[in-house]
Design a protein around this nucleic acid. Structure first.
Length: 413
RNA sequence: GGCCCAUUCGUCUAGUGGCCUAGGACACCGCCCUCUCACGGCGGCGGCACGGGUUCGAAUCCCGUAUGGGCCUCCA
């Protein structure tokens, strides 16, 4: 039997990073198995629906590189069928009316159990389960009913979802059994916590996928990082491309315990992926990011900076501050060693050709003649030219800045 | 409160009874490279929550305790 899974967000807001990770596991599993993956919007509670959410969820998934098969499904579309099934349960005595709503009647003795693909055997005593409302008095089905019903209708073979659904599972299994339906395989993946091991909080942590896009992370890096939150391939492999992840993913290597989101590790990993990009890809990522942040620096000049920043930054958001001196005027700090800067200006003014190699040669010669150490002598020049203590390589920066601007800055300092 | 789940370096994890004097990665610290910052190289610090069992032998199995989390909505 071929595998079919689903991603089932509720359209109540932006996509949460924990939800993204759960969807990623669904996607990796489906693609690994050569199966199908559906996107099903669980919108039976229209009162909580947020207008933009459905669009935004799709955009976020696409950005990450997670796709799905067939058109987007909406839970409301099958509401009628769900209500029919509820009436069948009513007729068979598996449900009863209560104040205009329909409640499912749980078995009163015995246990419900299943073998969770990530957590092993789990069982609940039936007598602790409450009779859930499955159809509201307004005639609309509720999650605990609509969701398993849709899973039947969609032919879902594996339900891969967050661990917060563990305690809904016995109820859903009882419903499925009353409906005489086959049970899917359940896999409950662990939660993701924030910095202090507590729940991710909107206030403290970056939680919306858009926050990560804004910060300048790139899709394969975030995917790699997220995949490693609760899953591993072996004892040493860390960096894996999307296709490697698809090839290697398996549910039995998902761990049952919750993970804490380590932003520093993500930063490092993003740097790894950024450095792996070739110049064109890098320039393209940069241009896209700049455009989305309303920075309209000339693209050919942005391209020219790529070799200077490629190895230096780990997030795209670090780019503007790092190279701002190439696009805007700078204000060098007070106290720059005028002797060295002036001498440098004289030497550079006399240069025949303006390129990094000749600039380096001239400046090193000067430093040598002055009896200075490169370390101490180049810093005032850097300050004068870039206005900052930290910058891309000095000689390359001077070349790109151009002779005229470089000399002006040196003389002004 | 009831039920359920989880617990290996600060963090993500490897580990399924002997290969473990517990391995890798991030972070941190030190050294090297070096025009700053990065990158890269080398080295270091650091952990099986606790208590009982079972066993010749336990991070691994069992029980209890503690801690954290989830659910207990006519939310999903």
């Amino acid at each position: 039997m071929s595998v079919r899974v689903r991603m089932a967000p509720s359209p109540t807001g932006f996509l949460h990073i924990g939800g993204v990770r759960t969807f990623l596991f669904n996607w990796l599993f489906a693609r690994q198995q050569g199966g199908e993956i559906l996107l099903r919007i669980e919108n039976t509670d229209t009162s909580r629906e947020v207008e933009e959410a459905t669009e935004q969820i799709q955009r976020s998934l696409r950005w990450l590189g997670v796709d799905w098969d067939g058109p987007v499904r909406f839970q409301l579309d099958t509401a009628e069928r769900a209500v029919e099934l509820a009436h069948e349960l009513l007729a068979k005595g598996y449900a009863y009316e209560d104040d205009g709503a329909i409640r499912f009647r749980q078995p009163t003795d015995g246990v419900v159990s299943w073998t969770d693909a990530v957590r092993g055997h789990i069982e609940f005593r039936n007598d602790v389960l409450k009779d859930p409302v499955i159809v509201r008095s307004n005639g609309r089905p509720l999650y605990n009913f609509a969701s398993p019903v849709d899973d039947i209708l969609d032919g879902i073979t594996h339900v891969i979802r967050g661990e917060d659904h563990v305690s809904n599972t016995p109820t859903q299994i009882n419903i499925l059994q009353a409906l005489d339906a086959e049970l899917p395989v359940y896999a409950h993946v662990p939660n993701i916590n924030g910095e202090n091991g507590r729940k991710l909080s909107k206030r403290r942590d970056a939680v919306a996928l858009d926050d990560f896009v804004d910060a300048g992370y790139i899709p394969p890096a975030l995917m790699n990082f997220l995949a490693l939150l609760g899953w591993s391939y072996d004892d040493k492999t860390t960096i894996m491309s999307p296709s490697e992840l698809v090839e290697r993913f398996s549910l039995d290597r998902v761990v049952p315990s919750p993970a804490t989101f380590d932003y520093k590790k993500l930063d490092w990993m993003n740097g790894v992926y950024l450095r792996e990009l070739d110049e064109d890809e890098y320039a393209h990522s940069l241009e896209t990011w700049l455009r989305e942040h309303d920075i309209d620096w000339p693209v050919d000049r942005v391209r020219a900076t790529v070799p200077l920043v490629h190895e230096k930054i780990e997030k795209l958001s670090q780019y503007p501050d790092f190279v701002r001196f190439l696009f805007e005027d700078v204000q060098p700090p007070d106290g720059v060693d005028g002797r060295i800067v002036e001498a440098a200006a004289d030497r550079l003014a006399a240069l025949d050709s303006w390129n990094a190699a000749s600039i380096e040669q001239a400046l090193r010669m000067l430093v040598d003649e002055l009896g200075e150490k490169p370390r101490t002598a180049f810093q005032p020049i850097r300050l004068a030219v870039t206005g900052a203590k930290v910058s891309p390589g000095l000689f390359e920066s001077l070349e790109l800045l151009g002779r005229q601007a470089a000399l002006e800055r040196l003389r002004a300092a």
